[in-house]
Amino acid sequence: MIRDALVIAGKDLRLEARSKVAVSQVLPFVLAVVLLFGFALDGESQVLQRVASGLFWATVLFAAVLVVQRSAAVERADGVTDALRMTALHPGGIFLGKVVSLLAQLLVVDVTLGLAMVVLYDVALSGVLLLTTCALLGSVAVAAAGALYGPLVAGARHRDTLLPLLMLPVLAPVLLAGARGFEIALGRGVGGGWQWAGMLGIVAGVYLALGIAVWGPLLEDT
């Protein structure tokens, strides 16, 4: 299954390197959100620093919708789904491969977004280990949910508008736990930040397990 995952992830990342959708569309979108919020809140750094954690995760989720739509569209093109069904690849391996490629793209989004907030909102970095852990686990959860929902809506009409409608509500726990974890790491919240990191780990684990279990039937039905 790991070998299959690497084959799929390698192919997806090569496709991304060719199309440059993440670099040319998703990263500019992320930077636009950061700038627009800065303008909307009159550039008041205290307010911006207070909302930075929640804004970070909300932006990651919106960016994830774009990345997942692209990832699912690639597999819908010109008979590729049938060709994938005709392979010896383990469905769980295909799912994990999609997760790895989505995760790689989301980590680029995380780093870009974090740097933009440090520079534009004057956010002082602290609790780097907790921040990094939350970003990593949260991104795994988002990537796993995205890899699961991408093919789920692939056969549906109006799939481009349906995807955010289905995906964003189920990622509410990631938004909540990620934002709380970040607030505590940045010294703005109270309580144990690692509990929130643990919650992100559980959500990631649930979506990974669910994806491995149901990707086979999903691939058959789309």
């Binding site: 084959v7 690639v74 093109a77 010109d78 008979g79 049938d82 060709a83 994938l84 392979t87």
Partner: peptide, 25 residues
């Protein structure tokens, strides 16, 4: 199976596509 659709990824080269499907099988 050679169907009506190509079953190929548009943005990959022909050689990359053929190698990818070989690995998959």
């Amino acid at each position: 199976l050679l169907g009506h659709a190509s079953g190929l990824y548009d943005e990959l080269s022909v050689a990359e596509n053929v190698r990818f499907w070989a690995r998959c099988c």
